[in-house]
């Protein structure tokens, strides 16, 4: 468990000069995950999306690690291929047998919850020694804030708009972390950029396990959430404190809440600062707001019920 002081001695594997928006949660997530990766070299893969596009605008790369982008739905399959090559080249005697390299695939929620779910599921089931990190900002941000299956109920998105007939996204969000836990892989965790200690500890564990590991990292998008640039981390913290985004891990099948929430706050404290939810605070949407609160309470209780201690 490294302190911040200790972490500063590790290499920051994401260089500045990338073209993500000011206040982007994705790059915060990447920095924290890769600081948690430890000393071994890391090969990074990334799905098409904001993170990939903005960090690799030819001829500039922000990656201080070997990096590969293939397409949108297949960062897990692509990195599984890189990891397989590592094994195959070792078997061929072209890479020393004791050489250690870590592999990580990043994808946004569109690239992970939606179009990349099959590729992710397959790679995890096959048992590749790799970490998959979803940076969840709850919509297709790269294409301009379209709803994904990670978008919260009631949120405005450009494909789930607000009008007399509809109040934003009508469906509940998919619980991807639990889907990944159901794969029975060695390590699954849900983390938030607001809780760096929890996140880097989880990244350390994810990279340390032999076999596949999955992390779902909450990473707000100021542009898509309609929040000021400086509120990225603050809003992420509110998601944790309201129970909207419980921080937990599933290690060899054992569930554990890693950050306890004392005096869980009303979900309103997470929703109200965000322009994408502003319609929920009209008097006529009081029932919808109550429904969202009930959904959060139920989901939070369900996670807690599975956690030990």
């Amino acid at each position: 468990m490294a302190t911040l002081k200790e972490l500063t001695h590790r290499e920051d594997r994401l260089e500045g000069g990338h073209r993500l928006c000011a206040g982007c949660g994705a790059s915060i997530a990447v920095r924290q995950v890769l600081l948690g990766a430890g000393e071994d070299p890391v090969v990074v893969g990334c799905a098409t999306g904001c993170l990939e596009v903005s960090t690799t605008i030819y001829p500039y790369s922000s990656w201080k690690t070997p990096f590969i982008h293939n397409a949108f739905e297949n960062s897990a399959a692509t990195v599984s291929g890189v990891e397989a090559a590592f094994k195959g080249l070792k078997a061929a005697g072209k890479i020393p047998a004791d050489k250690r390299i870590k592999f990580v695939a990043f994808g946004g929620d569109g690239g992970t919850y939606d179009i990349g779910l099959q590729s992710l599921s397959g790679a995890m089931e096959r048992g590749h020694d790799m970490v998959y990190v979803c940076y969840d900002n709850g919509a297709y941000m790269n294409t301009g804030i379209q709803r994904s299956s990670a978008t919260p109920k009631g949120a405005w998105a450009t494909t789930a708009q607000v009008g007399v007939a509809q109040q934003g996204k009508q469906q509940r969000r998919k619980d991807l972390t639990q889907i990944m836990a159901a794969h029975g892989i060695p390590y699954v965790a849900q983390a938030s950029i607001s809780h760096w200690k929890d996140l880097t500890m989880k990244a350390e564990k994810a990279f340390a396990v032999e076999g596949p590991a999955f992390m779902n990292v909450f990473a707000p998008c100021p542009r898509g959430w309609r929040i000021p640039y400086d509120k990225t981390v603050e809003v992420a913290k509110a998601a944790v404190q309201t129970g909207f985004w419980p921080l937990y891990e599933v290690e060899d099948g054992v569930w554990r809440q890693t950050v306890k929430v004392h005096n869980k706050k009303p979900v309103e404290e997470f929703l109200r600062p965000q322009g994408r939810f502003k319609h929920l605070f009209k008097p006529e949407n009081a029932d919808l707001l109550a429904e969202i609160q009930a959904d959060v309470d139920r989901a939070y209780a369900a996670v807690l019920a599975r956690c030990e201690g």
Binding site: E15, G16, G17, H18, R19, T55, T56, I57, Y58, P59, Y60, S61, S62, W63, K64, T65, P66, F67
Partner: peptide, 13 residues
């Protein structure tokens, strides 16, 4: 392929 790592350090944002 970009044959140098982290060269966005030279790109001013």
């Amino acid at each position: 392929c970009i044959p140098e790592s982290g060269n966005s350090r030279e790109y001013v944002t």
